[in-house]
Amino acid sequence: MAFQILLNIVIAIFWMALQGEYTSVNFVIGYVIGLGVVYFLRGSLNETFYMRRVWAIIKLIVIFIKELVVANLDMIRIVLSPKLNVTPGIIALRTDLKTDWEITILSMCITLTPGTMTMDYSQDGRTLYIHSIHMNSTQEVIDDVRNNFERAIQEVTK
């Protein structure tokens, strides 16, 4: 991945040199051309095209922002309703994610999304303990996290 980005920047600088003008507009044009070149070279580089990973990161950020807005609407509804209808509970969630930083991202996403908050992790770091404010069924909360975030994060690191 790092090699592909480096190659792309070198192509962009080469484009600027060919144009004879070292401006940021030329750099951007060169970078876009470099993207096309790297895309066609991806077979001989033996790696997946790195823009796919960038696209996955953008998708993760979009999901995150959407969930953050939903979480706030949810919070407004809870706080402003005259009667408190919350049923809190703490559940354990076993993740399939492997590395430390994936689990860190997952727990951050859990904290800032509707009704859930990371409280603790086990010794090996693979089990997260989640405090949830809408506990209708345990399975529902777990499925929610699995379908939304775990898949998006796996998409990034694949």
Partner: peptide
């Protein structure tokens, strides 16, 4: 909100 854990929800998200 009734207990500290629920209050934490409000304090972080909103």
């Amino acid at each position: 909100l009734p207990d500290i854990y629920s209050r934490m929800h409000a304090a972080t998200k909103s």
